[in-house]
Write a protein that binds this DNA or RNA. Structure first.
Lengths: 192, 192
DNA sequence: TGCCGGGTTGACCACGAGTCAACCAGAAGA
DNA sequence: TCTTCTGGTTGACTCGTGGTCAACCCGGCA
């Protein structure tokens, strides 16, 4: 099938790129995983960079779904409790055995130029997540939804980096405290 | 002179590595900058990775000095106002024209293995900064200095990443709000 | 029947990390 | 003064990796 091999390439590249870093992975390793020749690969992707962009778009879709589903499933009916559930997703993400930091941030650092397609894909993802949080904040009745969204996103970034670098188990607690105080400042008081 | 060329190599590598990312920089470019031959280079450093570690140690020393001096110079006599001055240093760092994220985080992502000397150098730096903030928090009379230090460090990480990815000018304001609320929770009330 | 998509092989180029042998000039100690 | 050490030079080399190219193969389909 047409898109099947392409998707298998993306899957194989995803785990390798994420685990070892883009530049540390040779195309040959991915080719071996999929069991395909180099020439065949270049009929699916224009370059290794292009494959990276494919991976990022794939992960972007997956993560957005994940956030949306989890927040709805576990956050209950009120937008304000859904906002709090965002931290639960963050917890799951950073406490996953194979967590090595936010792949978009990692890529944005390996492709520092803002003109780089991979860098731009990372920026797109960050914007999408902020937009998602913004809508939750608005529906939760935040007085300044934009501020709350940005604060929460910054906390998430901080949590990703801190966990990735220090492997500190208490990371999620720290993030939760920061987030809770942001909620208190930005959300209408909870009914008792 | 013995250490002179070594230092010049570190300086040249620092700006290139930081601007373009470690893997994107060829050793030859650095060699050209310094005006030295490849063989001569390998008499100063065992490998390109080794040069990276040299750069990190150098930046580590520089940044620690910078934090300590600025906080003392601008933070006034009280530890609690010095703690607030940490955010001023962060502002200066992220609003620098050539800011591209925290080099230690960038490197930790390009060397994902915790056994990697470069990765370990990054971890050392993060620990040193946290320790520095911890001491300030303790002297400022924080009830839980360790918690405050970790929260503040997480905010700093978040600010670095957010600014590096989004280039958002309001980054420092968001970080400041988060930090201020952490201070209010952890520091004894300010006298009016 | 003929063409096209997706695949194969194998040879090839360019570039970057790292090695090696041989050599050179100046400073420093016996 | 002779020797040795230090820091440097040149040039040729290996090896891994991204990427290209030509030629060929096979199954589905109009």
């Amino acid at each position: 099938m047409a898109t099947d091999t392409r998707q298998r390439l993306i899957e194989a590249a995803k785990s390798r790129f994420y685990r070892d870093g883009f530049r540390n992975v040779g195309i040959d390793a991915i080719l071996d995983d999929v069991g395909i020749s180099k020439t065949a690969f270049y009929k699916h992707f224009a370059s290794k960079d292009d494959l990276m962009v494919g991976v990022l778009d794939d992960v972007n879709g997956f993560l957005q779904q994940r956030f949306q589903r989890m927040v709805k499933d576990r956050g209950g009916p009120s937008a304000s409790s859904q906002l709090r559930a965002v931290l639960e997703v963050v917890k799951e993400i950073i406490e996953d055995q194979s967590f090595h930091g936010c792949i978009f941030v990692n890529v944005a650092m390996e492709f520092p130029s803002p003109h780089d397609p991979a860098h731009q894909a990372a920026v797109r993802h960050k914007k999408a997540i902020e937009e998602f949080v913004y809508e939750l904040a608005e529906r939760a009745g935040s007085t300044r939804p934009a501020d709350l969204a940005r604060e929460l996103c910054m906390i998430m970034e901080g949590a990703y980096v801190t966990r990735a670098v220090t492997r500190d188990a208490a990371t999620i607690e720290i993030a939760r405290r920061l987030a809770e105080s942001a909620f208190e400042r930005h959300l209408p008081a909870r009914r008792p």
